[in-house]
Write a protein that binds this DNA or RNA. Structure first.
Length: 429
DNA sequence: TTAGGGTTAG
């Protein structure tokens, strides 16, 4: 009963059954506890997992490889990666599943380098990776923006004859799109023999954020023509495509079709996209009105996005009311202060800008420095804003200068590329 | 009866 409930996504019922066993003093065996841990992993229930650990210890059941793996997975999913890693490091025997759980755990913890490190160790020990290992590693590359590494993983998958099923295929589509390689994402998508909603959604969202809004909407039409039903996440991609491509009316129509045609109720994410749609298009009043009237309360993303739009379009009034709300919600978030102060200073309101900086000082709020990662020759380098200590800094700044120059040229902002500063000016650090 | 992988707004 516990296994079946877990399998069908009813982890609360599964955990309820385990509590009932405890009450009725029915002794679980190792298989019961394994299933309970699987339910804990689904429900992110650390407390019950700790009760299972106590039970294993006090009843001389012992931690088999499988039971330890299940526990590691609970720890990873509950954000306790170090606890999982301790079990992993102390295990007398590790099979492929253990490695896969730990690699995914590090990826979820944003520790992509450690995930890739484990993959290296795995190869060193002669353990063959499978499609599950690869999906996690490809995801790590997607987060890092490590295109060359991602391409290498793709080649490795082909060379080792690892099956590219719909999950791994979707991960590759997503990785290529997140690394900005639209052609590779589309090619991967075309190559796949089977695609599901997530595959289509990954491509649509990827095209949208890479600046191919029209193509994303075209794929959305193709998706529907293929009889594939979009879900709530698909619409986030569709609305992103509209806002990035400046297609206000299309965006509005798609937003309305969500509930009318598909019975999908818009969530805060979708309202965020709509706010962005109006904000990017320069209609700050409409963006602000949407934030005022939306049926779900706007979160940090929505309000922060509105404040960002105010900076782009230089709207002080809406910026002030929005940052008031943001500062009430998150008084120790440095980004809000910096953004508001930059809005003031960009309009020559130096006293107000200084006032915000002083408030920040008073409240002892710090803004963590912005950080970028750049991949050169398959190696990922991390740079902080104004960082000149990295040995490859001059090269990176030259690249950034060139990129900014090109985008300004494309927008017609600056004709002469030499006007773009080589280093980030002191005051922006 | 038995552990692992993919899509989400500024």
């Amino acid at each position: 009963m516990i296994a079946a409930n877990t399998k069908w996504g009813r982890s609360a019922e599964a955990l309820g059954l385990y509590r009932r066993m405890e009450r009725e003093k029915v002794k679980p065996n190792d298989v019961t506890l394994l299933n309970v841990l699987a339910a804990c992993a689904c429900a992110r229930d650390l407390e019950t997992a700790e009760r299972v650990v106590e039970h294993v210890k006090s009843n001389e059941i012992g931690f088999s490889t499988v039971l330890s793996a299940a526990l590691m997975d609970v720890y990873c999913k509950c954000g306790q990666v170090l606890l999982a890693r301790k079990i992993f490091d102390e295990m007398p025997e590790r099979n492929l599943v253990c490695w896969n759980i730990m690699i995914k755990g590090h990826v979820e913890d944003s520790n992509y380098m450690e995930a890739l490190n484990l993959f290296r160790k795995m190869q060193f020990r002669g353990i063959k990776a499978d499609k599950v290992t690869m999906a996690s590693l490809v995801l790590a590359c997607a987060h890092l923006g490590a295109l060359e590494l991602g391409k290498w993983l793709h080649a490795y998958i082909k060379r080792e004859g690892i099956e590219t099923d719909v999950v791994l295929g979707t991960a590759l589509v997503d990785m290529y799109a997140k690394c900005g390689s639209v052609n590779n994402a589309v090619n991967m998508f075309d190559e796949m023999p089977r695609r599901d909603v997530m595959t289509w959604t990954a491509l649509i969202g990827g095209l949208a954020t890479c600046g191919h809004g029209e193509k994303a909407l075209q794929m959305f039409e193709e998706m529907r023509a293929n009889g594939m039903k979009p879900d709530s996440v698909t619409f986030v991609g569709v609305l992103t495509a509209c806002s990035h491509a400046g297609l206000v009316e299309e965006g509005r129509a798609h937003f309305d079709s969500m509930s009318a045609l598909y019975g999908i109720q818009p969530t805060v994410e979708h309202y965020g996209c709509m706010m962005d749609l109006f904000g990017r298009a320069g209609d700050l009043e409409k963006a602000a009105e949407l934030v005022r009237t939306m049926p779900v309360s706007p979160d940090y993303f929505v309000l922060g996005g509105l404040l960002g739009a105010c900076r782009i379009h230089g709207n002080v009034a809406i910026a002030e009311s929005t940052s008031r709300r943001l500062l009430e919600l998150h008084p120790d978030h440095g980004g809000t202060y910096v953004l508001l102060s930059n809005i003031y200073s960009s309009m020559g309101k130096w006293d107000e800008a200084e006032g915000v900086r002083e408030l920040m000082e008073e409240r002892n709020v710090r803004k963590p420095p912005g950080c970028s990662m750049v991949e050169i020759d398959g190696e990922v380098h991390e740079f902080f804003v104004g960082d000149e200590t990295h040995p490859r800094s001059p090269e990176i700044y030259a690249m950034v200068r060139d990129m900014i120059g090109r985008s300004r040229e494309a927008r017609g902002d600056v004709a002469d590329r030499s006007e773009v500063p080589l280093c980030i000016p002191e005051e922006e650090k």
